[in-house]
Design a protein around this nucleic acid. Structure first.
Lengths: 337, 337
DNA sequence: TTGTAGGCGTTATCAG
DNA sequence: CTGATAACGCCTACAA
């Protein structure tokens, strides 16, 4: 390993001078020396040792991407196409700015704090649902934290979110406007304070506004995989009055469409479906899915924007961005009027 | 930050002793002291500083996951559902074994080496296509390297791959057995020495074996997104003799199915399609896609197995695992016989 | 413009 | 059993 001292010896100067050149403190070093040192750095292939740097400067240039508390065994947190899209965007932008990305799932607050301290992370991205209690342990750490899709309003954290409520409200309203009156709601397990709850509330709100009584019996909660979707379909066909379904995730909508078709139901003739997310999949299913669009790449980029500002020590004017959604009409909704 | 010295002072022993306890060198410390120290560690919330540890031990417990050389702008390397699935599996297993995962895309060998040295990584996962030249710069680094889906046979690296050739051969053969004679091949851009090339060769081989002449004109290469697939469909319909299509990725197969349907073609009645990968999507499209199955989670886990063995300094009996594939018959292939 | 000294937190060596 | 000491590579005063 080539160290700063090797460069110093090779060029006949002190380590300090080399360090100064590396950090661009050009006013303290003669142009000639700078030249010489830079050449030696190239020549010998010097690369700064981040561990050493991190140790002395208590900044590591490492940013963590931490994923929700794992509940089930076997949860592969990358399976969600969203996380992956966001992470990709985040890695790219972070890299351009000289930061490094560490990926981590944690099961509890303790693990998280440990993780942070081990590497004295410079910042943290969070996604998924956390209890408020979870965040309390973070509050004392004063390190930049950017949340993705969080509804835990802990002060001091930035958040890039989505109009989940409105999106889902619009999805439901769309069905209502097309003449539907019996509209179910399907979703992965709805947890308190999460994205899905907002979407659920949006659905209920649209119903209420239209004077349609909410029925608990037509809210279906299951995992997102295909077999779970098939289970939901068993329930759905027990409700022949249903003409429409709001689904809080496209993947699930696709699964339900498949399940329904297997049972001989036609979409949208027998049941209309509106999804959420507008992942590429929604254009690939048959019929193409009417859904609520969101821009995940943008979400990732904005999250990094926040992070970079936070890291640079700026005080922010806003700490909360809520991206808007829009309905994308395709062919999975039938006009009943 | 609580340091080892804080613990030492709190318990009235030396830093060395604390260090010994932390590393389980119990034979060198009295049971009583151990007890005391462990309590203090809990009490004060001591967490080892990895930077310091890494600095002195020249091992960081950081494993890098490096993605292919980026060619296009805008390439979001997480968009491929495979990478994400593999990464998830890798992170989980690595974590269980006390390692940390850093994600990184690099554009050239220099960047890679720099990245490695900055953190003196303990190991490296690679995915995507690299030129041999790329690896040469790694060879001198003697750090454990595990490749995913590589066909660059540089000695000293482990690789977890797939029977790409055979899988694609079987896909093609399946169509032939069902009576198809005019079979096209669609794929993302086929690069030399990559997975896709193998799949392409498998296709050609099956053709040759059946005495079907290979036709360059019915090999379609495009990006994987829907619009590119639509472009392919324009070409496909120019070849009315085509009854079957082997597609080297399910996502693309799904896109082509959509494009074809938009043009009024029925699947499988007008054209039969066989995909590759068996991602969940393939069960969600209509008709469900006949495809070549592979287990991506397993791939990730095996890759970590390799890595852990390498890290423990073992000499391996095998350095190459090739996972097998199998044909999953669904409904996208018509029997022409 | 350049150099010296001290220290970041940890571990290994060697002595008590 | 326990502890002092040096070293890992780098950075930041402070001196020269």
């Amino acid at each position: 390993m080539v160290t700063i001292r090797d460069i110093a010896e090779a060029t006949g100067v002190s380590a300090t001078t080399v360090s100064n050149v590396i950090h661009g403190k050009d006013n303290r070093v003669s142009a000639e020396t700078i030249q010489k040192i830079n050449e030696a750095i190239k020549e010998l292939g010097y690369v700064p040792n981040m561990s050493a740097r991190s140790l002395v400067s208590s900044s590591s240039r490492v940013i963590g991407f931490v994923n929700h508390v794992i509940t089930r065994e076997n949860t592969n947190f990358m399976e969600d196409p969203f996380h992956s899209a966001a992470i990709g965007a985040i890695e790219a932008t972070l890299r351009e700015n000289g930061y490094f990305l560490m990926l981590r799932t944690v099961e509890n607050a303790e693990e998280l704090v440990t993780f942070l301290q081990r590497w004295n992370m410079d910042g943290l991205f969070f996604t998924g649902i956390f209890k408020d209690k979870f965040f309390d342990s973070l509050a004392g750490l004063h390190i930049p934290v950017v949340l993705l899709d969080s509804y835990v309003h802990t002060s001091g954290f930035c958040n890039v979110g989505l109009e989940d409520f409105t999106g889902s409200y619009n999805a439901t309203k769309h069905l209502i406007e097309k003449g539907h009156r019996h509209i179910g709601f399907a979703s992965p397990n709805i947890k308190d304070g999460g994205v899905l709850q907002e979407r659920f509330l949006g659905y209920k709100s649209a119903l209420a506004e239209a004077g349609i009584p909410f029925e608990k019996g037509i809210v279906f909660q299951q995992e997102m995989d295909l077999n779970s979707c098939r289970l939901i379909c068993n329930d759905i066909v027990e409700h022949p009055e249903l003409t429409g379904l709001v689904v809080s995730a496209d993947i699930m909508a696709a699964g339900i469409m498949t399940g329904l078709k297997e049972k001989g139901k036609r979409i949208p003739d027998d049941i209309s479906i509106v999804g959420f997310d507008d992942i590429s999949l929604s254009q690939l299913v048959d019929p193409p899915l009417t859904t609520i669009h969101q821009d995940m790449n943008l979400k990732g980029r904005l999250a990094v924007d926040f992070m970079l500002q936070l890291l640079s020590g700026k005080t922010l004017d806003t700490t909360e961005i809520t991206l808007s959604t829009r309905l994308v009409e395709r062919s999975s909704v039938k006009d009943l009027r």
